[in-house]
């Protein structure tokens, strides 16, 4: 599966599926609390299973700086 990272720079990774979203993030070394995982318009939870031909987006929720 294709995983597009926006954390926040755009990066792409290839992973083998099927697997759970939780495993995808583990494999990428990403802390789940800091991101939202989407498949197209659909938002996914950690227990959702994704297929080998899916394209996922991992969007960072963390923003920095003094505010």
């Amino acid at each position: 599966m294709r995983v597009v990272l926006r954390t926040p720079e755009r990066e792409e990774r290839e992973l083998k599926g099927p697997k759970k979203v939780r495993e995808v993030l583990e494999e990428l070394g990403i802390v789940p609390e800091g991101v939202i995982v989407a498949r197209g318009e659909e938002l996914l939870t950690l227990d959702d299973e994704v297929a080998d031909d899916d394209t996922l987006e991992v969007i960072s929720a963390v923003s920095g700086g003094a505010r």
Binding site: P8, E33, L43, I59, G64, G65, A66
Partner: peptide, 29 residues
């Protein structure tokens, strides 16, 4: 949380700026 807010903006399809301020890089926060 930031994650909950991001989910809200995505589900409501609100236009927002995704990119980070260049000065945020390396911020202690």
């Amino acid at each position: 949380t930031e994650r909950e807010i991001l989910a809200y903006t995505l589900l409501r399809r609100l236009p927002y700026q995704h990119e980070e301020c260049p000065f945020a890089v390396g911020a202690k926060s």
